[in-house]
Simulated assay, not measured.
Amino acid sequence: MEKPVLYNSNREFEQQQWKGEIAYWKEELEMFTIKLSEFITRWGEKEILDQIDDYRRQFVFHGEVIEDLLEDLEQQEVFLMAQSDADILKNETALVKNHVNLRKRMENQREIYAQLKKQVFRFLEEYL
């Protein structure tokens, strides 16, 4: 089996993309939290308030997940700074596996978060 090869330029590009995406998610989570807080003052029905509270908890959870992703991404960058400046990291199988794992986690977070946003928008449309 051929060893995976990870080019620094590709890794750096992907990591910058992830950082931008995480920054956007953080801003978006703040906006959703504010918007849901506004709705709490408008609605008195227990069922609606419970649903809003559930969405707020999910946003807190997603905030924690993206913080973990960002921390792991930064740790990987610190590790890479200590490595050689070679263009190809051929013998760093652990690094490649770690990067691929981060990629899978980002993809998973993207999908789960997108589903949550769809649910929240549908909820808002129904009760606005």
Rank of each mutant, 00 (worst) to 15 (best):
M1H: 09
E2N: 08
E2P: 08
K3P: 01
V5I: 07
V5A: 13
Y7D: 13
R11I: 10
F13S: 13
Q17L: 15
Q17F: 15
Q17C: 07
K19R: 13
E21R: 05
I22G: 00
I22R: 01
A23F: 04
A23S: 09
A23E: 09
Y24T: 15
Y24K: 09
K26C: 00
E27A: 10
E27C: 10
E28M: 02
E30N: 07
M31L: 14
M31E: 15
F32R: 00
T33S: 13
L36E: 02
S37Y: 02
F39G: 04
F39Q: 07
I40S: 13
T41E: 15
T41Q: 11
R42Q: 15
W43I: 11
K46A: 12
K46W: 03
K46N: 11
E47S: 11
I48S: 02
L49G: 09
L49A: 04
D50I: 01
D50S: 11
D50E: 13
Q51W: 01
I52P: 00
D53C: 03
D54I: 10
D54L: 14
Y55F: 15
R56H: 10
R56N: 11
R56L: 12
Q58L: 10
Q58W: 08
V60D: 07
V60T: 12
F61Y: 14
F61T: 15
H62S: 05
E64D: 14
V65S: 03
I66W: 02
I66L: 14
I66T: 03
I66Y: 00
E67M: 06
E67F: 02
L69K: 00
L70N: 08
L70D: 07
E71Y: 06
Q75W: 08
Q76M: 15
V78T: 14
V78L: 12
L80V: 08
D85G: 04
D87H: 06
D87L: 06
D87C: 09
I88E: 12
N91Y: 13
N91R: 05
E92D: 10
E92L: 05
E92P: 00
T93F: 08
T93N: 03
A94E: 12
L95T: 04
K97W: 03
N98E: 08
H99N: 09
V100L: 07
V100I: 15
N101M: 04
N101G: 08
L102Y: 02
R103E: 06
R105W: 06
E107T: 07
N108R: 06
N108A: 14
N108K: 07
Q109C: 12
R110D: 13
R110L: 11
Y113A: 09
A114T: 15
Q115Y: 05
L116N: 01
K117T: 02
K118P: 00
Q119E: 15
F121G: 02
R122G: 06
R122A: 15
L124G: 01
E125M: 14
L128Y: 10
L128T: 10
